[in-house]
Design a protein around this nucleic acid. Structure first.
Lengths: 229, 229
DNA sequence: GTCGACTGAATTGTTGACAATCTTGTCAAC
DNA sequence: GTTGACAAGATTGTCAACAATTCAGTCGAC
């Protein structure tokens, strides 16, 4: 077996398609309530319908799309209350992880973290929303992985993914991206300096802006007099 | 549409099959490393192979089975280290939830909880491991749901499910079942009495026995000199 | 006697076609 | 002008056959 990972198994393709759709949702190319037709996506992304089907099922499980039997899938619109609840759990988990990171942090954590921080900063400077999104994800993954508990990391990532649909407001906003960039720099500093209190506080602060921006946007745009959605 | 939930969609059947297999794993009918052949399961459970396939994929995501490409699925054997990590996160999350339950607890929470506690006690008395397992799950779900954050509850349930494969030791043991029964009673008491400190302590204690029993069993039975598994 | 290659059986992975279901547009009746 | 039924189109849900892969046992060479 000389290829190894070379051959693209179905499972890998499903993950790839799910990731592509996720990005399109996060970056606001696919808007809430927009229909996701299996056959159309299959053709556009160059895969079989079965692959798209599984990818949509995955995104439904994660909470990014909504699937109605015999009717198809649409990009899900997150309720403000739901977003608040998710962020409150995120805060607890990320705090927990930050408290368990051994300090002073190991160089093999710090070095890649600095590299990712820089990549994020470059993407922000270039106005590359997609690059910033990807670097941002990897930055946080690397950071929290340092806590030593992969299951905790998995939960944190899952929750972050759940609210990806609520990030199209901030994911492309230069102001928010610049703020995130600066906060990342501060986190790295706190890690390097062994200042746990600051690190934990930064992690907590870091969550606020995107949550508040989304809630404000939804309540301004979607709430109709007398209605709940 | 006069039937509503009457018609059995594929998604429902997948969930059902997954739940059946999960129970068989928890109760020790299916042992670690035991093969799970799609066609055989499809015939035994009276569904199409495609349904079994998706159910196995679901159980793989959850962490109860392991699937190797072109080779099939087997019941997964959890590493002691992994079990420790999962239980440590469970402890944190369940503590968090217990701390957020409004006290004194609402009657519409307490009443069903007492009913489930009794059902569990009856199953234990009757030596009905499956009944005890089901009542136990619903008891904890009802308890933690009272914290008001469905996403936190979902995480707690997911983690509990992840270690279901590690529960075949305690799920059928009269001693452990009796202990769980008594602890449930104490939890209800603490809830009714508004004693949050006791409730939190009980939730934490409650996790210990099954974790320790599993780790002890695995390390006694499966560790070979010089090997890691 | 041991090692390596080969063949056959078992199992999963993939595909395309068909059936069931829902939505939209049209038209007639009130 | 509005409402209801009806038909056509679009979309998902289901299935069974076929292809690809892996494993176990056997046979032959050294």
């Amino acid at each position: 077996m000389p290829d190894g990972t070379l051959k693209a198994q179905t499972a890998d393709r499903v993950r790839t398609v799910a990731a592509m759709l996720e990005e399109e949702i996060v970056l606001g190319w696919l808007l809430p309530r927009e229909r996701l037709v299996e056959e159309e996506l299959a053709e556009r992304l160059g895969v079989k319908r079965h692959v798209v089907r599984e990818a949509l099922a995955e995104l439904e499980r994660v909470g990014l799309v909504e699937r109605i039997p015999n009717r198809g899938a649409v990009v899900r619109l997150l309720e403000p209350e739901e977003v608040r609840q998710i962020y409150s759990v995120r805060e607890a988990l990320e705090t927990l992880a930050a408290e368990q990171i051994p300090l002073p942090v190991a160089p093999e954590v710090l070095a890649p973290l600095r590299a990712l921080q820089q990549r994020h900063a470059e993407a922000v400077a270039a106005g590359d929303a997609r690059g910033a999104f990807r670097a941002n994800i990897r930055f946080h993954e690397t950071l929290f992985r340092a806590c030593g508990n992969p299951h905790l990391v998995e939960l944190i990532q899952g929750l972050a993914q759940k609210v990806h649909g609520a990030r199209s407001i901030t994911a492309a906003s230069p102001g928010h991206l610049a703020l995130a960039r600066d906060e990342h720099a501060a986190m790295v500093e706190a890690l390097a300096g062994g200042d746990r209190g600051r690190l934990v506080a930064l992690c907590r602060q870091h969550l606020g802006p995107s949550r508040d921006a989304y809630i404000a946007a939804v309540e301004a745009r979607f709430v109709r007099p007398g209605g709940t959605a």
